[in-house]
Write a protein that binds this DNA or RNA. Structure first.
Lengths: 170, 170
DNA sequence: ATTAATTTTCAAAAATTTTTGAAAATTCAA
DNA sequence: TTGAATTTTCAAAAATTTTTGAAAATTAAT
């Protein structure tokens, strides 16, 4: 496979994967482009490479910076801003895990805590029983996942996978 | 909090969470409704409870069945089909993990394997170097995650969280 | 202060995804 | 078979999300 073909495939695939990970196609494509770029890129570089609008690039970059996986660089004597991706895959993964924990897991835990205390209600014994059971179980699972994610995001790469694998006899 | 309020909050929240987990609002709402229902429900029950169309219920249920988290029940002497959710949270979680592994993780690994072998190209040494480095690192991480997920989906509930937590000194 | 370069904002347009609802298909009892 | 009950399909409509692009804001050099 030629480099340009591989590069194109990588950017396109990362873009469509982004969609199923809850980020927009172009945001993921920009991220892909920055990951494989040895040098930091300007807004215009990105617009030209991916054929997308200035506004889109601006908003997507802000979002990537909020996710903590893209950084801004300032070059002395140059008005333009340069953007650069985090390239350490472990750091990338832990940043993404932290953000998703905040956006997806924590809201569930909050909701489940809210619905935990329901008043007695004569006519609906069975339904209330079922409701309490599943929400309690989901809450317990969600909290354990939260703890596990904390272990993951705080651990050192070297340790995590190898220790877990050894633990389960792999 | 009153039961009906809690129930409403649970269904609505699960619905909007579904969106960020890549399934449609109504599909997640149907799942929520079935999880808290002590008895299996018919298509008409679900339509009435959630105020959504027959077609939507039919398609969403098929999808939930494909995910392996909802089952069809047949009641003797009744033409209607009854639907029931998996209620064991560990089974739910492992099913969802398996499906997402198949839909999200495996495609990345396939793509990264494809772009792995690129021909030498005189003019682009530095770019090719950077490309090879990041795709190799991503591939290695993706494969380790895949293995970890296999450990998770094959392990017993009791073991998983407690062993991992103990391992990391929690 | 003025101006040119650059970035950001956001309303409108485009694209995509979800939902509807009625027709078609299926199922099963008589 | 026939036909009523039920489920499925899918084109069109609605809702939602993403993208555009030009105006406004910001930045920094002169």
């Amino acid at each position: 496979m030629k480099y340009n073909e591989a590069r194109h495939k990588f950017i396109q695939s990362w873009g469509s994967l982004g969609t199923s990970w809850g980020i927009s196609r172009t945001m993921a494509q920009i991220h892909a482009l920055l990951m494989i770029s040895p040098d930091a890129l300007t807004t215009d570089d990105i617009m030209k490479e991916l054929g997308i609008s200035r506004g889109n690039v601006s908003m997507s970059l802000r979002s990537l910076i909020e996710w903590g996986i893209v950084y801004k660089d300032y070059v002395p004597g140059d008005r333009k801003e340069y953007y650069r991706s985090e390239k350490d895959v472990w750091v990338l993964a832990t940043q993404v895990a932290k953000e998703r924990q905040k956006r997806e897991l924590e809201p569930v835990i909050r909701m489940l805590n809210q619905v935990k205390s329901i008043e007695e209600d004569s006519g609906q014994k069975k339904k209330i029983q079922a409701f309490k059971k599943i929400t309690k179980d989901l809450n317990s699972f969600a909290k354990q996942s939260d703890q596990l994610l904390n272990v993951f995001t705080k651990s050192e790469e070297h340790w995590f996978f190898s220790r877990v694998k050894k633990l389960f006899g792999k």
